[in-house]
Write a protein that binds this DNA or RNA. Sequence first.
DNA 1: TATTAAACGAGACGGTACGTCGGGTCTTCGG
DNA 2: CCGAAGACCCGACGTACCGTCTCGTTTAATA
Lengths: 195, 195, 195, 195
Amino acid sequence: MPETPTAARRSERSRAAILAATAELIREVSYAKLGIEAIAARAGVGKQTIYRWWPSKGAVVFDAMLESDSGPEGPALPDTGDIAADLRQLLRGSVVALTDPGFESFLRAMYIEIQQDAELGAAYRERLLLPQRAAVADRLAAAVAAGEVRADLDLELAIDLLLGPVQMRWSLGLGGLTEDYADAALDAALAYLRA
Amino acid sequence: MPETPTAARRSERSRAAILAATAELIREVSYAKLGIEAIAARAGVGKQTIYRWWPSKGAVVFDAMLESDSGPEGPALPDTGDIAADLRQLLRGSVVALTDPGFESFLRAMYIEIQQDAELGAAYRERLLLPQRAAVADRLAAAVAAGEVRADLDLELAIDLLLGPVQMRWSLGLGGLTEDYADAALDAALAYLRA
Amino acid sequence: MPETPTAARRSERSRAAILAATAELIREVSYAKLGIEAIAARAGVGKQTIYRWWPSKGAVVFDAMLESDSGPEGPALPDTGDIAADLRQLLRGSVVALTDPGFESFLRAMYIEIQQDAELGAAYRERLLLPQRAAVADRLAAAVAAGEVRADLDLELAIDLLLGPVQMRWSLGLGGLTEDYADAALDAALAYLRA
Amino acid sequence: MPETPTAARRSERSRAAILAATAELIREVSYAKLGIEAIAARAGVGKQTIYRWWPSKGAVVFDAMLESDSGPEGPALPDTGDIAADLRQLLRGSVVALTDPGFESFLRAMYIEIQQDAELGAAYRERLLLPQRAAVADRLAAAVAAGEVRADLDLELAIDLLLGPVQMRWSLGLGGLTEDYADAALDAALAYLRA
DNA sequence: TATTAAACGAGACGGTACGTCGGGTCTTCGG
DNA sequence: CCGAAGACCCGACGTACCGTCTCGTTTAATA
């Protein structure tokens, strides 16, 4: 009777089936209507097998997102030596990802959970958000060193200025998330970066 | 045969009690655990009286937020003639509102619903979000006319740049929402406004 | 996918608790006020456990009656060789049973359901009524063979004549159900049996 | 503020509509599903108008039965001088009435209520049952006087013996309620009457 | 004939129970 | 002996009616 389940005995088949079923279902039904029972049934798995390995629905969805092909781009940013070009790719990539139907379902689900579940929110930040921001920070630091941007740049604030506009429009359903918008937002932010 | 019930016969007492009970409960329990039955019980009202007038839990919470004392500041912005000072007040006010425990509960709830309920999302934008943005746009337009900011300013983008950073940090739980941060974000955005 | 749930997995503990709770409650409240929720609560059981195994309130009460100690006497009739004495015991037993507070509650409930639910009515007849009548018919047939009663006796009609008066007074609330009445009704019926 | 509503102002139109709607509905739905709201809606009447004049659903149904064309035969029995012929008409009439679809619905409803509502049960006995039995008793008393039946006849018991078999078969759903059965039951009872 | 108080149609209200759904736990049984 | 299957307790869901309580609107007995 394993108090903490023994990872060694875990069935890889079940784990994969659960995450795959979750990825399928999240595109078919709203996150609120996505239930553990439905996941278990779709995966051909007992409910207990889910509860044994994940603490909540949000945690399953989080893992399913990480597993998914539609997962977000890795934390690396290109360094072509041209900070503007590199950031343009970042912002355009964000717009594309946020409007990709497969990925958007996952991300809306994560947004919902982040508002409610502090633990999952922390996991989301540590596993996804902060690494991404660190990558951008690194690239910006290189740009500072190269003299492409102002020397006294506040890296955190710069990231917020770059990503905030796109993120806000997406999370509030304001629309207008095109690559043109990404370019315009970048230009506006560059005004500060280069001030 | 009231397909839509007759508003004339509606009990103001019940309406107020429901919204007040909702405002109380949303601070006591998480939004996911907030149920119609609990609202009805707290308000001393039959469940049907809620279902008769609101289509969903989110709609009740929305109305409760509008009714609440902790409601967001009205859409008006001061016009002191100094655009930087006026925007500073806006951003600081945003930080204060977003960290006020009473208001934050409502807003997190709205964020959750916006991700799921398109209709409620549209109502939220039309009733709250767009009027606020329009007020800021008006103030910015006045600043353009006064020559305080660049003549070719993209008003929508300017608003995104001003509010996006604060909004993103709040909605992703990144913390750091102080008045100092508000000032720093304003300064950064002003680099674009005045470019 | 248990369209019909698997009886093998059924919890005997729950089944017994439900029927016991029903037997208790039916004496405390009128049948109309007896609700599934109250039974579930008294039995310490989820409502679904009742709905899973019984199609209606009436079916639960029927099973509870069968299970109850206060259940009706078994279908066997004594055969002392004296048909009048044996029938006297039958009729007196009926009067006693119909005026026993514990049993009467159950029987009134069954009467109500029989008027409304054809399926339950059929079950009641097959499980209780017809076996009892068959036992009486057997005893009467023996009396015919022994020459105690007329040779051309109509067994069904004889049973109706014996039991009808008592049953009618009880079901219409006419009162007067004493052992003396049982004896008088028997004597009257015997006039036909022996004609 | 009329504690007891003034019968003088009562709307005959409403009263008739309510009883007519009840008579219609009782044939369309089971008695358990017959609701005050449905009666009010069908009658084009406010619910309060029903509650003002009747204490319960059963009381409405009772009045509707009395009002109905399908009402039971009046309490008078023919007196042709031949007690057997007169009782044959009584029993055949009972069988016909109990198998008339219109009347049967009402009577099943009354049976249900009698089991539950003592007050309504008393009203049913006083208004319908006992007058009918008194009429039969009168006819039997005349037969005693005429020397057609035994001098020491117990009138109550005789009525029970005559009507009990038919009533029991009907109320228990045993079937077999034909005019032939009525004749057979009469012959059996006559064995006692004439003993 | 005009007044006026009631009964009326309508239906919102506070409740109670319904029958269903799904959550998270516990038990059984087959591979 | 693991894990799928699923029964269990629980609690909320959204619905249906209950019986009560306003609302205006007829309507019929007075004044």
